[in-house]
Computed example of a mutant assay.
Amino acid sequence: MSDMTFERMIQQMTPAIYESLKQAVSLRKWPDGRFLTPEQTELCLEAVMRYEMENGVPEQARVGYLEQRTCGGASSGADVPPERAGLARDASHD
């Protein structure tokens, strides 16, 4: 019987295995094309997240990272690039 635990698996995970699991979660399928089950997706995602935490992956490079932006009254919109400025305009008057 194997004494491999989830914790030990994370500790022994290589960067190549991490990247492979991260890609599998992103595509929802294994490198050979077989689809991940919901349970496999959940376990792989947990493994990826644990690896990132335990190996000091920068927050901006972690799975699921979203850049925080201000909204509402605190946002002046001054940092919005011109090509995106019209995205929220009211198109009903066009």
Rank of each mutant, 00 (worst) to 15 (best):
G73T: 04
I17E: 08
T41L: 06
R84E: 00
C44K: 00
A61S: 13
A85F: 09
P81V: 01
A61I: 05
F35G: 09
E83R: 00
D94Y: 11
P82N: 04
S26N: 08
M9W: 07
Y65I: 10
P15F: 00
S92P: 05
V25Q: 01
G77V: 07
L87I: 02
C71H: 13
A16D: 13
R89N: 04
S26P: 01
Y51N: 08
I17T: 10
K22M: 01
P15A: 00
D79T: 09
S26R: 07
R50S: 05
I17C: 07
L87V: 05
Y65W: 14
I17Q: 12
G72R: 03
C71S: 13
G64R: 04
L21C: 12
D94I: 10
A61Y: 10
D94T: 12
T70F: 02
D3R: 15
L66H: 15
L36D: 01
T37F: 07
E39C: 03
M49L: 12
V25H: 00
R69K: 11
V57P: 13
M1N: 13
N55F: 08
S2V: 11
G73K: 08
A24F: 08
D94W: 12
T70K: 12
E7Y: 04
P82Y: 01
W30T: 13
I10A: 03
Q23S: 13
L66Q: 15
E39A: 11
V57W: 14
L45A: 11
Q68I: 04
V25T: 03
V63I: 04
T5H: 03
G56A: 11
K29Q: 13
E39T: 03
S75K: 08
P81R: 01
